[in-house]
C-alpha cells in the first residue's frame, strides 16, 4: 500500500500532465497578474519601491486565491465523464485527491511569483528569499484548504454546474477585498475592519507582507501560520466528508 505523499504525487503529476502538452495555458495564466500589476501599480501613491513592497505579496496571494478556488472547476468535467468516479474506486487516499489537485493549481503560481519578483526588481523591489519561501509555505497551506473547499463545492454542485460558479464568484471578491489585498484596510470603517478580522486570508496577507520584506520574527507570522493551517485542516475535513457522502 502507498503513503499519503506517494498518493499525492500520483494525483499531482496526473493533473499536471496535460499542462505539459499544452503549455500555452500556463503562459496565459503567468502573464495575467503581470498585466494586472502593470496597470495597477502606477496608481499607487508615493515611493514606487515602497508601494511594490506592499503590493507584490498581495498580487501573489491574489493569484493563489484565484487559482485554488478554481480547483473544483476542472473536477466538474471529470465528474461528468466518469474519471473522478474511477479515481474514487482506487485505493488513493482521499486527502491525496484533494491535496494533489490543489497543488496542481498553486505550483504554477510559485513560478509566477518568481516571475513577478524578477519583473519588479528593476523598479527597486527587494525581497528576503528566506522570508518569501516561508511565506509560500503558509500560502500553500491556505491554498490547499481553499482548493479542498472548491473540490467539495464541485461535488455539491455536480448536478447544477452553474451553482459552482455562482458560489465561487460570490465568495471570491468579499474574501479578496476583506483581506486588504488591493487596498489597505486601515482607513476603512470599524464594521469593515471587524468583518475583516474574521477573514483568515487577511492574516495570511499580513504575514506575507512582513515575510517578503524579511520580518520573520513577527506575530503576523504566527497568526498567518495559524490561519493557513486552520483553513487547510478545515478544507481537508470538509473535502473528505463531501467525497464520502457524495452519491
Amino acid at each position: 500500500m502507498t503513503s499519503l505523499v506517494a498518493d499525492t504525487r500520483t494525483v499531482f503529476s496526473r493533473e499536471l500532465r496535460p499542462l505539459r502538452y499544452d503549455p500555452f495555458t500556463i503562459i496565459i495564466s503567468m502573464v495575467q497578474p503581470l498585466v494586472f500589476l502593470a496597470l495597477f501599480a502606477p496608481l499607487l501613491p508615493g515611493d514606487k519601491s515602497e508601494a511594490l513592497r506592499w503590493f507584490v505579496p498581495g498580487i501573489i496571494v491574489m493569484s493563489c486565491l484565484f487559482a485554488s478556488s478554481m480547483t473544483g472547476s476542472n473536477l466538474l468535467f471529470e465528474i461528468q465523464t466518469g474519471s473522478h468516479e474511477r479515481m474514487l474506486v482506487t485505493p488513493l487516499r482521499r486527502p491525496a485527491l484533494l491535496i494533489g489537485r490543489a497543488l496542481k493549481e498553486i505550483v504554477p503560481m510559485v513560478a509566477q511569483a518568481a516571475l513577478i519578483v524578477v519583473v519588479c526588481l528593476p523598479f527597486g523591489y527587494r525581497l528576503s528569499v528566506g522570508g518569501a519561501l516561508l511565506g509560500l509555505v503558509i500560502l500553500a497551506g491556505f491554498s490547499i484548504g481553499l482548493g479542498a473547499l472548491s473540490y467539495a463545492l464541485a461535488l455539491a454542485a455536480k448536478h447544477q454546474e452553474w451553482m459552482f460558479w455562482v458560489v465561487q464568484q460570490t465568495l471570491l471578491f468579499p474574501i479578496l477585498l476583506l483581506a486588504g489585498v488591493l487596498l489597505p484596510l486601515d482607513g476603512g470603517p470599524g464594521w469593515l475592519r471587524t468583518l475583516a478580522s474574521f477573514n483568515p486570508l487577511r492574516y495570511v496577507v499580513d504575514a506575507e507582507r512582513a515575510l517578503f520584506t524579511g520580518d520573520i520574527w513577527q506575530s503576523t507570522t504566527v497568526t498567518g501560520l495559524v490561519a493557513a493551517a486552520a483553513v487547510g485542516a478545515f478544507g481537508l475535513f470538509v473535502g473528505v466528508r463531501a467525497m464520502n457522502r457524495s452519491t
Binding site: R14, P18, E78, T81, G82, S83
Partner: peptide
Amino acid sequence: RQRIGYIGQGNGAGHSQ
C-alpha cells in the same frame, strides 16, 4: 479498493489526458 477493479458507466480516462 486495492483488490477490485471497477469499470463504470462513464469513461475512466480523463479526456485531456
